[in-house]
Amino acid sequence: MIRFEAVGKRYPGGGEALATLDLEIAAGEFVFLTGPSGAGKSTLLKLVSLIERPSRGQVVVNGQNTRRVSRRRIPHFRRGLGMVFQDHKLLADRSVFENVALPLLIAGFSQRDINRRVRAALDLVGLVDKAPRLPLTLSTGEQQRVGIARAVVSKPPLLIADEPTGNLDPALSLEIMRLFERFNELGVTLLIATHDIDLVTRLGHRRLELVEGRLIGDTGSSDAIA
């Protein structure tokens, strides 16, 4: 699902964010990405979502070499993956329903399909009754679940999340992770950057540890079978 081959990333005017990284994540895996701040977790996720391009090496996502994805094709490429953010990145002036519907609108689904799929996605995260509300009237945990519903509504095979529980208390964090595990059971590949080591240890999935742009630990995918 994701393959890094000798990937390096250097930001202009900055240091080396990633140094010669080799990595393989198979379809259906549940992978945590850990490490201290500035270790390159976000950079790695940005390379997967084509927010950044590698300075060296190849990144292959979903069978596509990102080098061969032109600027024009990036939107289409991104529709193949779901993204969850620490700050949710919801549109404040649109209802929960409209936020979740946005990826389907972009992809050109019919209104009937949109209604059906948004209901299903909101049902998965337990927020069907909040559909007409504005995001800011919801709690942080609920907002994050809206963000997750939006990420999975178009049924992408890959879900990446950057500190999805960064603003949540332990109980809510666990709740969100359990949600991710349910998607994983449905076949979605997950790559989640977090520094919540307790949670990672407790859930016991494959863990990649980055320090200063280098992969210093990989527990392997022994846990992949749920």
Binding site: P75, R78, M83, I106, A107
Partner: peptide, 8 residues
């Protein structure tokens, strides 16, 4: 945000 979720 719209660019992030694949808006052309």
């Amino acid at each position: 945000v719209v660019k992030l979720i694949g808006g052309s």
